[in-house]
């Protein structure tokens, strides 16, 4: 449906930005994410930043899973 990859904004000039994707740099448009700024992580699709990436969220994904698995287990014991 749609490939998109995360990239870090390393330069901004009006509605365009240079993003770094694992060392590769490309110009992308920020028209769909006007709030994006220097240093932000954005999701890039077909030459556009289409959404901001919550970097904190990205790091926490693993921790959150443990927390969930734990919560589900307690729920089960509580119900069981």
């Amino acid at each position: 449906m749609c490939l998109a990859v995360p990239g870090k904004i390393v330069e901004v000039h009006e509605t365009m930005a240079t993003v770094d994707i694992a060392g590769n740099k490309r110009q992308v448009s920020l028209i769909l994410t006007p709030e994006a700024q220097l240093g932000d992580y954005v999701l890039i699709h077909a030459g556009f930043a289409i959404q901001m990436i919550d970097e904190k969220e990205a790091q926490e994904t693993l921790a959150l899973f443990e927390e969930w698995a734990e919560k589900e287990r307690q729920l089960e014991e509580g119900l069981g």
């Binding site: 449906m1 749609c2 998109a4 448009s29 769909l32 699709h45 077909a46 030459g47 556009f48 289409i50």
Partner: peptide, 8 residues
């Protein structure tokens, strides 16, 4: 493409 590509 779908709603991801159409806005572009």
């Amino acid at each position: 493409g779908f709603e991801t590509t159409a806005p572009t």
